[in-house]
Nucleic acid binder design. Structure first.
Length: 269
DNA sequence: CTGAACGTACGG
DNA sequence: CCGTACGTTCAG
């Protein structure tokens, strides 16, 4: 039925080099067998800016290291170029690099997208030295980098990226597990924590980059690696995309979500 | 608006 | 009890 499947990398060497336990598993059994209807080639359309991009993605890893301050500042540490830290910057950078590689891959479709394993793009991270197992997600990263769409000529079907990272199954899992009434405590009790959907690309990542602000600042920031931050959690409950996804499901506890959003949505103005 | 810091829910 | 990470608040 479904087309090729491959975004999480069939053979992702679970090298969770994170300092601690990382939910390698998709949080949910059904997620493990999550099959993505799109293969890498599906996202790769025009490997053009590959070369140009390469120039941008060379911030000299060594410099980054050297530039690393003694993180003694209590606040605001303008260490190395923020552009490599900011979510957008990160994505852009990585996406750019990936794009480059993607271009190569696109030109030389190895096998059936079965992770290929036929290339130097296995573990050897580079440029930012930040990545770890981005290759497996190669195709899936683009959908999250709006900046990259025009760059690579990507297109989001109907403007909904979810199709890329999560199929109907994913949504189901998301709604069924991550947002179960019990988890959300919909009854306006205390602010319940949402859980990672385990389906989105970030969730599928198994390694912390150890380079992003979140990783470097984990002790104080208490945040998960920016690369691993669940796409769903990034969105505010009740957001536009959120709603769409929920509606896409009949079993979707829209009400719960709505309620949750009502409480959490109230932010300062 | 974005990112950092903090409080604390949550799971082992 | 401890570590991780989500949600909120604050500063730039």
């Amino acid at each position: 039925m479904s087309t090729a499947v491959d975004i999480a990398g069939p053979s992702s060497p679970d090298r969770a080099h994170s300092s601690a336990k990382i939910p390698n598993e998709p949080l949910r059994p059904s997620l493990k067998r999550s099959n993505h209807p799109y293969g890498l080639s599906h996202y790769i359309s025009t490997p053009s800016p590959a070369a140009d991009v390469k120039g941008l993605i060379q911030p000299s890893p060594a410099q980054q290291r050297a530039a690393q301050p003694a993180h003694a500042k209590p606040r605001r540490a303008p260490s190395w170029p923020d552009m490599w830290e900011s979510p957008s910057g990160l994505h852009l950078a990585h996406a750019a690099e990936l794009l480059m590689r993607a271009g190569l891959l696109a030109l030389t479709p190895a096998g059936d997208g079965e992770g290929g394993g036929s290339g130097p793009e296995e573990e050897e991270e580079d440029s930012t030295g930040c990545g770890t197992d981005f290759q497996p997600f190669l195709g899936a990263w683009f959908p999250f980098s709006p900046t990259l769409f025009p760059l690579a000529g990507f297109q989001m079907g109907g403007g909904h990226w979810r199709s890329a990272a999560m199929g109907a199954e994913g949504i189901e899992g998301l709604v069924a597990e991550g947002y179960s009434p019990g988890s959300l405590g919909g009854s306006g009790g205390g602010r319940r924590k949402r859980k990672r959907c385990g389906e989105c690309v970030p969730c599928r990542r198994q390694t912390n980059c150890e380079q992003c602000s979140s990783c470097r600042n984990r002790k104080r920031g208490h945040q998960i690696c920016k690369y691993r931050k669940c796409e769903e959690l990034k969105r505010k409950p009740g957001g536009p995309g959120f709603e769409s996804r929920v509606h896409a499901h009949t079993n979707a506890p829209t009400r719960c979500l709505g309620e949750s959003g009502a409480s959490a949505g109230t932010h300062q103005t």
